[in-house]
Amino acid sequence: MEVRTIKVFTTVDNINLHTQVVDMSMTYGQQFGPTYLDGADVTKIKPHNSHEGKTFYVLPNDDTLRVEAFEYYHTTDPSFLGRYMSALNHTKKWKYPQVNGLTSIKWADNNCYLATALLTLQQIELKFNPPALQDAYYRARAGEAANFCALILAYCNKTVGELGDVRETMSYLFQHANLDSCKRVLNVVCKTCGQQQTTLKGVEAVMYMGTLSYEQFKKGVQIPCTCGKQATKYLVQQESPFVMMSAPPAQYELKHGTFTCASEYTGNYQCGHYKHITSKETLYCIDGALLTKSSEYKGPITDVFYKENSYTTTIK
């Protein structure tokens, strides 16, 4: 009895394709271990004539594949690729409408935090270190965002349907971005203890939790000093293409032309909904596939993004 075979390709990165001759009487799992086709788990399936010449994702289970996976995804987590594939199996079914010149995501599976993050990423200057993220990001900007969303979920250790947080998501993504040249110098002034300067680099240099107003941050924000008295913390120097200011959701007025974009969060910790506000020729609110415009805006804002380049204080 002759062994019926077909020729397929296996890959971990969709760049390096490895030619395989597979036995049609055995499952993919018996031949390769966990195997995925377009995100779908085909591990328990036997090869079919229609699979001839198709590319299958496999887990990096030998040295060659491990090197290829690390170079593309910059992670050695053995569960990463499987999590990416199972997320992709959902995100490829989502709709990605162009809204006001940006790629958004039609609401499904509690994905409003991903839509808000995706919209924000198209408006701030950011370059990702893992080629996987950078490639998928370019495709997302062009309207094909399924891979990018699935990668975000995998890097953030999230599953489809789980509630997510924009600030946490951005923080994970910033860790995989090139923020080497970003720098922030802060000064804390206390009447009792004097003053202390701190220099922050990388992710810490672009994120701040405690106030939404970048102007206020430049002037000074009140913080408790270690001595128990009130101290003032203010920005001395900022070198970065953008800054992200966050605070627990509270009524906040966004003035046209003073910011790049913002995240609105309605609801409580267990259950809520994100919308995205962007400042173009007027203010726009993007909620999944829905767009509304207004000249002014007041609502429960939790993150505001500002364009920056270089700032030095005039406070002496």
Rank of each mutant, 00 (worst) to 15 (best):
R4S: 13
Y57P: 04
A142I: 15
E253L: 09
T282K: 12
F56T: 05
F259K: 05
K255S: 10
I105G: 06
Y155N: 03
E281P: 04
D165F: 02
T76Y: 13
Q197C: 08
Y284Q: 13
K54G: 11
K201Y: 13
H276P: 01
G288Q: 00
T91G: 03
R141M: 12
P47G: 08
S240F: 01
E281W: 00
R167P: 02
D13E: 03
G39E: 12
N309C: 10
V12I: 12
C149L: 11
V21M: 14
Q197E: 12
L173A: 03
S263W: 01
C182N: 03
C182T: 04
G272T: 02
A132H: 04
E204W: 08
V236T: 06
T64C: 15
P78H: 09
K46W: 14
L163T: 15
N49W: 15
H51K: 04
K219A: 14
G33D: 04
E215F: 04
A150F: 02
T75C: 09
V12D: 07
W107H: 03
V22I: 09
Q237N: 10
S104R: 02
M170N: 03
T19Y: 12
S79T: 15
V22N: 04
C182K: 01
Y269E: 15
Q222A: 08
L235G: 00
V185N: 02
I301W: 00
L173D: 03
I105L: 06
Y28R: 04
R4F: 12
K218I: 06
Q251Y: 09
I105V: 07
V22W: 05
K293T: 14
I301Q: 01
Y113G: 00
T116R: 03
A289P: 08
A289Q: 12
P47Y: 05
Q31D: 05
M207S: 07
Q30E: 14
S263Q: 04
A69C: 14
G194W: 01
K127S: 13
G267K: 07
Q98E: 10
E68P: 04
P47N: 04
F80D: 04
V304D: 04
P249T: 00
Y138M: 15
A250W: 05
K158Q: 05
F32W: 10
E71L: 09
G143T: 03
T169S: 05
L163R: 15
Q270L: 11
S310Q: 14
L17D: 07
V12F: 06
Y36V: 06
Q270C: 11
T35S: 12
Y96K: 03
N110I: 00
C156L: 08
Y138L: 15
V8F: 06
Y155C: 01
K275N: 05
A289K: 08
A108V: 09
I152N: 00
K293A: 13
M24W: 08
E296L: 10
Y234N: 06
P47M: 05
G257E: 08
K93E: 09
R139F: 08
L17K: 10
